[in-house]
Design a binder for these strands. Structure first.
Lengths: 245, 245
DNA sequence: ACCGAACCTGTGAACTTGCTGAGGATGGGT
DNA sequence: ACCCATCCTCAGCAAGTTCACAGGTTCGGT
């Protein structure tokens, strides 16, 4: 069961086994590209639209399983796009992108229907996690999978944010949680510091590169302290999370 | 029991197991959309009509289990719609939406048959709760479910509005009750402040965002004071209600 | 053994987030 | 008309979190 089309342990798929279809809507080409690439890496089929009108057309033509929608588009407001898209795709879940300091971007009611949003600047890990959560909830994909990640005796419940090792509860901060989630979604795979930085930190992070080392150190303190280590350093390469067995 | 079609603990269904069918009638597209999406998220099958005539037609065609009906439609009065709908669907329960300052006796006439109403602006949590109550009362759905929510030693009777923890009665205000109900319908799931705001507060709430913090604080005072805490803060993420075990 | 590079981690400052007391506004009930 | 419960704003405090920096440690190669 480990060797499917991808060696990722947890690629989501639709009921008929075909890949998840996502539509990314952002007028900034760089961001649209960044998101598209990240989602393709999840094994999904991705299209993107650079305007509201294009988004409405694309939604109609492609019938995506999920939509990532920047609420700040030049031609149509987020709510307009949503309404028009819902006219043809009444059930598609939407993840909204909104500026953090947006003067009340009127996101009110957007999460009410079960949709969700993330604020810019976001981390890719966060976007992907939320999309997966949306897909899980709406049942659009065949996920035998629960919202629980398990690696060895390490356990993470994405819904309740509970983490435990060998039954013992572990409290993590938001950043630690995201970092560990990234590791747990890629067990036994070496992740370089650059990869981790790109994935777990906000895309505009401009700080010192050793922040990853610092947080790995924090994580080890919480999950490896006094136990068989699961988080290993590969000098000059990166880090791996491996079952302690 | 964890792996049903949805991971919601309490999705209502009809006798034959098919989803509940709801018809939303409101001439304001945004509101109709908001309601429809929220009800779909409950796992129901939803259609909406934007006028009285369309509503009558839709009711005939769809034979819904429940109808959400704005009494203030441009083409037909609420009474007319009700009368015509009842001609083809004599038993369908109706939840009326009415403006706050609407004349009281008219509503009284409408709801005489066991129907119910909420005033605009409403909170989604309230609408959903009333609809669930209507469905329960009319027996249109197979609800093994009682009107009682239980999480750990916390108990809430939705019909009598009684709340107790470990046998001890707790008096809650209306807002506190709705907030706790939302938590109890989503135990062990992180709820963000935005989600809570969208769901528990009226859709036109434009106030300070820290209102959620305030009410969580009130709730804790009443349900957690001097006990093992059940309402936990996840900094930067949201809140979770968990059994104190 | 030695050396430099890579990595680890203690310290503390800056910042963010959440909590809660005080009090104003509102509205229903008597 | 008054009172009281409730809802909500505001603002200050407390606590948690993120991050830079720097000195210490480990590792691999020679």
């Amino acid at each position: 069961m480990t060797t499917t089309t991808s060696n990722r342990p947890d690629v989501l798929a639709r009921a008929d086994g075909s890949p998840v279809r996502a539509l990314v809507v952002d007028d900034e080409p760089t961001l649209a590209e960044l998101l598209s690439t990240a989602l393709r890496y999840e094994g999904w089929q991705v299209d993107h639209a650079l305007s509201g009108h294009a988004a409405v057309r694309a939604a109609k033509a492609l019938d995506p399983d999920v939509i990532v929608l920047d609420v700040m588009l030049p031609d149509l407001s987020g709510i307009d796009v949503l309404r028009r898209v819902r006219a043809t795709n009444p059930n598609v879940p939407v993840l909204f992108l909104t500026a953090k300091d947006a003067v009340e971007d009127r996101i009110a009611g957007l999460t009410a229907g079960g949709d969700d949003y993330v604020t810019k600047p976001f981390s890719l890990e966060e976007v992907v996690a939320r999309l997966r959560a949306l897909l899980r909830r709406t049942g659009a994909v065949s996920s035998r999978e629960e919202a629980v990640l398990v690696v060895g005796d390490l356990r993470m419940d994405e819904d309740s944010h509970e983490v435990s090792r060998d039954g013992e509860d572990i409290r993590l901060t938001a950043t630690e949680f995201e970092l560990l989630r990234y590791f747990m979604r890629n067990p036994k795979r070496v992740l370089s510091k650059a990869q981790i930085l790109d994935r777990v930190w906000q895309y505009d992070f401009g700080g010192q590169a050793n922040i990853v080392e610092l947080y790995v150190s924090y994580l080890r303190r919480k999950i490896d302290k006094g136990r068989t280590p699961m988080l290993h350093t590969l000098r000059g390469v990166g880090y791996v999370l491996k079952p302690s067995v």
